[in-house]
């Protein structure tokens, strides 16, 4: 914001210099009645329109569209506006504050309280898309699930919390989004487990645990690297003996280990 910017200032702009790509969906009755009250009170709109500059002497209404509709109906020549910075994030913010848009929260990181509040908000809407869902059960299961690696809402029906695929799951879109973590980088080169140094073993195990691949996030890479490195491996004919070490590996883990180790 420059010193001489009119951004943030209350401006009295000609109605004809304003345009809007969105329409207010308020009923004709509300608009007409509000326009009449606006005219009765000197035609000064005390709640301003929020506009962005789209060219010299040209503005676009970004929020408070209702007031724009009323001002037009009241035949105002000029209308009080606040010019805002035309950044998408700021426009979003004004729309949230004007209740023209519902803010969404990141389900991957949201707290229990926020998830519960969001579900209650959905359930309280007139069409209640979560009809029949026990919200307490739902929030318990969603909170307990490991949401950090979710790419979308598809794991939710698997939680058996009453939020099924279809209308219920889709309704979550209006209050949640998932900021999916970036995909993991390419794995380190496959290396012979018999010849690998301690450092090379640790590097590969760290890759599997850091990027939570195949349930490896529960392992402690330093500890199992020590065990694997110290184990006598010369007689091994496959990676299966790994399950016999004191690492806690099961057969399912061997498949994952094969992506970074060979014999």
């Amino acid at each position: 914001m420059g010193k001489f910017d009119y951004v943030g200032q209350l401006m009295h702009l000609p109605l004809e210099s304003l345009q809007s790509s969105e329409m207010s969906s308020e009923s004709e009755f509300v608009v007409t009645a509000a326009a009449a009250r606006l005219q009765e009170t000197d035609g000064r709109n005390w709640i301003p329109l929020i506009v962005k500059e789209v060219g010299d002497y040209q503005y676009e209404v970004v929020s408070n569209h209702f007031i724009f509709a009323v001002a037009q109906h009241a035949d105002l020549e000029k209308v009080w506006c606040i010019i805002i910075q035309p950044d998408d994030e700021i426009i979003d913010q004004t729309q949230f504050l004007a209740r023209e848009k519902t803010p969404r929260i990141n389900l991957a990181t949201a707290s229990r309280d926020m998830i519960f509040a969001a579900l209650r908000h959905l359930a309280a809407s007139p069409e209640n898309p979560l009809k029949g869902v026990d919200l307490t059960v739902a929030v318990n299961r969603i909170e307990a699930a490991d949401r950090s690696a979710w790419q979308d809402f598809s794991p939710i029906p698997k939680l058996k919390c009453g939020i099924t695929k279809g209308k219920k799951l889709d309704a979550l879109n209006s209050v949640f989004f998932i900021d999916a973590p970036p995909p993991p980088p390419a794995p380190p080169e496959i290396i012979s487990i018999k010849q690998a140094s301690h450092e090379e073993i640790l590097e590969r195990l760290k890759y599997l645990t850091d990027y939570r691949i195949g349930g490896f996030d529960k392992f402690e890479p330093e500890t199992i690297a020590d065990i694997i490195f110290a184990a006598p491996k010369t007689k091994w004919k496959s990676l299966n003996p790994l399950t016999k070490l004191d690492c806690g590996f099961e057969t399912s883990h061997i498949k994952v280990l094969k992506t970074v180790f060979s014999l």
Binding site: F4, Y6, H12, D56, W80
Partner: peptide, 13 residues
């Protein structure tokens, strides 16, 4: 000043 669009730039325009 609220009625002067573009503020101090108006005179130059």
């Amino acid at each position: 000043h609220a009625s002067i669009q573009r503020g101090i730039k108006r005179l130059r325009d």
